[in-house]
Design a protein around this nucleic acid. Structure first.
Length: 492
DNA sequence: GAGTTTGAAACT
DNA sequence: CAGTTTCAAACTC
């Protein structure tokens, strides 16, 4: 920490101009030292935009890529789908490496460059707008606060590679303060894996840094423990100057801190590491960590595990204990892997985003961001991504003969046979019936009525009535369709 | 375990 | 963007 700790810059969003305007330079201490977002919220610079996004706001600290020290200023992120270079507050992280500055390959900008409070909502939107697929609804709904920390989709990592090209576009969207981050990111690729229900790993492909957090992860599944010995601590500076000297052996190297938290030192672009804090009743400071595969092994034979066919690759993980053939999804083929990641992101900037969004409230899973396209499975087999994710098909899906909805008898039978039948399934109907086509058709009808009224020269009140009546007709048809699909008699 | 089916990803 | 091919997982026998 340095003298700039506690300094915050708040920005007021000029809605009319779409820009950020510095509102106040706050020296106030955060209300909660561990949750900087609270500090931001409590300050006078709390913006309308962030107020609107409050329920999904998180705060992270930018981590120094070499020392893994927190960059002292506050970064306030809201609903951010891109969590790159972000880490939880200081009490929730530890150093991963004691990397000497002499080993820096890419220049690290001065810390002054970070003396901004940056709304991640802005970054999120800006990044989304430079992506071809734009800011999908998933991006905004797929993240929710969890016990004061981050709760991103537990099954998928989240990745952002900022190319110089994207940096330029990002800077256009977010002048000034964002450019400093881009300068930081430009020389290397930065991949952040926030999978595993709270794990945050910051890496770049040349000087890998993993940061383990000792956040509360009691709810994480499939956890196991190690002893709390500190004998296996690794000396600082173990990583090579290039970050490539460590050979990935399949068993990640770890570094256990004095707090008992173990870090991943393995230079994998995407880490799969699960951390569990000490169990109740355990000695404080003995956070336990164990590496484990969060996935099943792949069996790829032709893709070299460098395409999204490979589940490991798609999940942002290197292959480990897989049965794949001619695998390039490992650190020994870092360059090929990086190129493959880049290629995937060029094809689809959201390629590594989780496909299944989560609802803001409760534990109910949300929806498939793209929807499935099943034709023969009835969406009642694991071929269907929705069914596999234990969610209902929605209007987003383009499936044919779908039976993956609440009222489906087949679905109910299927659920009885399913191991985990306790999961709540949101009802597909009636909303599923209101497809974009239906909405478009409805709007078209309303517009036609408006045009008709205008053409006839009716007064506005009459025109409104015509439009409302037309809307009623549309609704009637929609409702009739809904009832018809559910075999319920509908009399109007 | 081999063969088939399926649908997402990749390609054209 | 639509159609086709490739691919690996899911499924069946």
């Amino acid at each position: 920490m340095n003298e700039s700790e506690g300094q915050e810059y708040s920005y007021r969003r000029e809605l009319s101009e779409g820009s950020l305007v510095p509102l106040q330079h706050s020296h106030e201490s955060p209300r909660n030292a561990n949750l900087f977002s609270h500090g931001m919220h409590s300050g006078p610079g709390y913006s309308r935009m962030e107020e609107a996004l409050q329920e999904d706001d998180y705060t992270y600290r930018i981590l120094h890529p070499l020392t893994c020290d927190p960059v002292p200023q506050v970064a306030h992120f809201s609903s951010a789908p891109y969590s790159e270079y972000l880490l939880p507050p200081s009490s929730h992280y530890q150093h991963a490496l004691g990397q000497p500055y002499s080993s820096i390959r890419s220049p690290w900008p001065s810390q002054e460059a970070f003396h901004y409070g940056i709304s991640s909502g802005e970054i999120c939107r800006a990044v989304a707008t430079i992506s071809s697929d734009g800011a999908d609804d998933y991006s905004m709904e797929g993240y929710s606060a969890n016990q004061g920390f981050i709760h991103v989709n537990r099954n998928q990592p989240h990745t952002l590679l900022v190319s110089p090209h994207d940096q330029h576009k990002l800077e256009e969207k977010l002048p000034a303060q964002t450019s400093s981050i881009c300068q930081m990111l430009q020389p290397v690729q930065v991949v952040c894996d926030v999978s595993g229900g709270g794990q945050v790993v910051v890496l770049n492909h040349q000087i890998p840094h993993s940061v383990m957090t000792d956040l509360d992860t009691q709810s994480l599944p499939k956890l196991s423990v190690q002893s709390c010995s500190t004998e296996d601590q690794l000396p600082h500076g173990k990583a090579s100057d290039t970050g490539h000297s460590e050979t990935f052996t399949g068993q990640p190297q770890t570094h256990k801190t004095s707090a008992g938290v173990t870090f991943n030192l393995t230079p994998v672009p995407y880490a799969s590491q699960t951390v569990v804090q000490e169990e109740e009743g355990q000695t404080k400071g003995c956070g336990r960590v164990k590496w484990e595969k969060s996935k099943r092994p792949c069996n790829c034979t032709k893709s070299q595990c460098l395409k999204l066919y490979c589940e490991c690759f798609a999940n942002g993980e290197v292959c480990n204990n897989c049965k794949c053939v001619n695998c390039y999804n490992n650190t020994e083929h870092d360059s090929e892997r990086s190129q493959a990641i880049k290629a995937c992101l060029e094809r689809n900037p959201g390629a590594f985003r989780p496909k299944i969004g989560s609802k803001k409230q409760g534990n109910v899973k949300g929806r498939h961001t793209k929807g499935c396209n099943c034709k023969r499975s009835g969406c009642l087999k694991n071929y269907c991504e929705c069914y596999e994710a234990k969610i209902m098909c929605t209007s987003t899906c383009k499936c044919v003969g779908c039976r993956n909805y609440e009222e489906s008898p087949s679905k109910k039978r299927s659920e009885r046979d399913r191991p985990d039948s306790s999961i709540y399934y949101p009802t597909r109907c009636p909303l599923a019936c209101i497809t974009p086509d239906v909405v478009e058709a409805t709007c078209g009808c309303l517009l036609a009525q408006a045009e008709e009224a205008e053409k006839e020269g009716y007064i506005s009140a009459h025109a409104e009535r015509m439009i409302l009546e037309e809307f009623g007709q549309c609704l009637t048809q929609i409702v009739r369709s809904i009832f018809k699909s559910t075999n319920v008699q509908f009399n109007v």
